[in-house]
Nucleic acid binder design. Structure first.
Lengths: 196, 196, 196, 196
DNA sequence: GATGAATGAGCTTTCATTCAT
DNA sequence: CATGAATGAAAGCTCATTCAT
């Protein structure tokens, strides 16, 4: 038989990231993804049920990866909460920094995916968030962070900051150093803008 | 082409906000907007060239309104930079708080609109941003804000925070008090999370 | 506005009869029906939900017509059962004789339609059959027909005869006189082939 | 092209009968047939040129079998025409009674097969019919059947009765005894419904 | 020969947009 | 101006068939 040539599933996902990033999920055509992956349009349906499952798989991959990175950090007793928090930011930024297009897709499409397919959206997103919250809570308890922190709000704000930062970087109009920004972000989150 | 004045254009825009918020721009149907506005689908094309011009008009209205509110504040010599900054946040939050759907549309669709129609996207967005930047710069000069603030980064981060906050509020899963959050946001931006 | 030109619904049904007759329901293309009807393919969907609803509408029209013709006959007290039975055959044959294609569609597609969409198939078919059965029962009671007739079987057999006759006529290979055949059919049903 | 001999070809045909019966020819998937036969989809094409040849082969098998059963009966000088006629009915009913699915396929698909592939449709169908006609003609000549029988019409009617009977039995809604019906059918064909 | 991954033509259906009335 | 019937391009998806292994 004609055996599988290369890893088509991965090729499709890679192609999809590019096409989704360029056109947005809705405007993206299955044919474009197939072309980009170098396969026939019909072949996509051997690997994914439909267009929606492709992007859901993408998000599953990303958040699973992120969760698997943050999870051991969260549980590490040798680290201070402050250090863990820094690593949280590092992990997110570094994972997305690998691929501008991936960053774009996640930043631009996540919101409506959660709205449209709440049942099917990857559970790793919420798991990752819980880990992040646990780190902040630990910081509060260990008196490294302010005691009046509202965890729900903090989550919203930091998520927003990271998204915004990644979007700006990924669009790439302004040549910004994402690594430098990462450090500034940490500092900003911790200290704010007030003169002290 | 926004040729006609009067309440029909407004009715269309109001309907569009609702439909875009519920379905997202791409999935939104012109027929749904027409139904919601109580007019015939074909009539929309007397007021707007096409679907894209409707949403661009929406964004123009919103950012024009915001710019017209922040502009006098920025120029007001009787206010401290810190007070101006608070008003900046107030203005943004308050304008969107009037209409959950408007908040959703702006938060969800702005990014791809700028990507897809960079030339046609409202100039008021950038004007508003410049005003915001001027306020922060003034605060730095007047030594109310830290001197090492990176204005570009700050803009990105604050924008992200506001978007994230509005999105969470507008989705409305968690019953949050947007007014309380507004104050927390100001505090967070200014002081960060570190214990002092 | 552009008002309805002609009766498009009827044009679609007429076109559909032709296309379904020529290609069979499954192989029939919506575009062929639209072409035949002289309209755009998309227009069909203003009148029918989908392909399946077109053919279901066809069957509804046909069996409604047939039921409305047989119903008064069944209830007519001035007629003998024998005469009613003759009219039953006349009605069926005459309705289908108007349009070879209609005959073909009904004969060829009814069976799988009932299988595939039992809930949506026209109730008039069953109503018509009940009327037919009532006529035969009356004939038995009034001792015009044999007392050992099995009504369920008779229904099956007569239906089969009529279908087969119509099919042969509609295909039109053999130039047969449907009117002559109709009389022979009545005689055959009543007397069989045995020499007496 | 039926190139290969042996049980794989048979397995495909057996599987095809089931799948065609359940879904109808058009909706039947080659993959389903392959699955049912326990082979790979591609393998089917070693035994049959395409989907159409499978069903044509099926019909060839069936009508060949039927022809080979009726042929000696027809020529048997020791039997009366009446007895031969009974055996004709017995043969048809009994062959199909072995397999509900086979009955369904023949009843539902024959008509469009003859329409779509008149050149390729099995010649045994026509041969079988000729034998049947010969029997009836003999009955007429030997004065067992009525002299005014129209042989073409009779063929049409009896074929229709048998098809209808088999369809009803094969669908299996009503639990009917096909053997009992067979006898009733013979009687009906011979005597009709009139009271004598 | 057997496999099943790969193909891609071709289908139904949607919906932004047009335009006759 | 307003209407909504009509359009038709465009897209997602299916599945009979091919062919490298």
């Amino acid at each position: 038989m004609r055996t599988k040539q290369g890893n088509k599933e991965e090729a499709i996902l890679t192609a999809a990231v590019k096409v989704f990033a360029e056109s947005g999920y809705h405007a993206a055509k299955i044919h474009s993804i197939a072309d980009e992956a170098g396969i026939a349009a019909g072949s996509i349906y051997s690997y994914f049920e439909n267009k929606q499952q492709i992007i859901l798989a993408l998000f599953d991959d990303v958040w699973k990866e992120l969760y698997e990175q943050i999870s051991p950090v969260e549980k590490d007793n040798t680290l201070t909460a402050d250090a863990k928090f820094d690593m949280l930011i590092d992990i997110v930024i570094d994972v997305f920094t690998v691929d501008r297009n991936l960053a774009l897709v996640v930043v631009n499409e996540e919101s409506h995916l959660i709205r449209d397919y709440p049942e099917e959206f990857t559970p790793y997103f919420e798991k990752f968030m819980k880990s992040g919250e646990a780190i902040v809570k630990e910081g509060v308890i260990k008196r490294q962070f302010r005691s009046d922190i509202k965890i729900d709000l903090l989550r919203i704000l930091i998520l927003g900051q990271i998204r915004s930062l990644l979007l700006t970087w990924a669009i790439g109009d302004k040549k910004i150093s994402i690594q430098a920004m990462k450090e500034d972000l940490k500092k900003f989150i911790k200290c704010g803008i007030n003169r002290v």
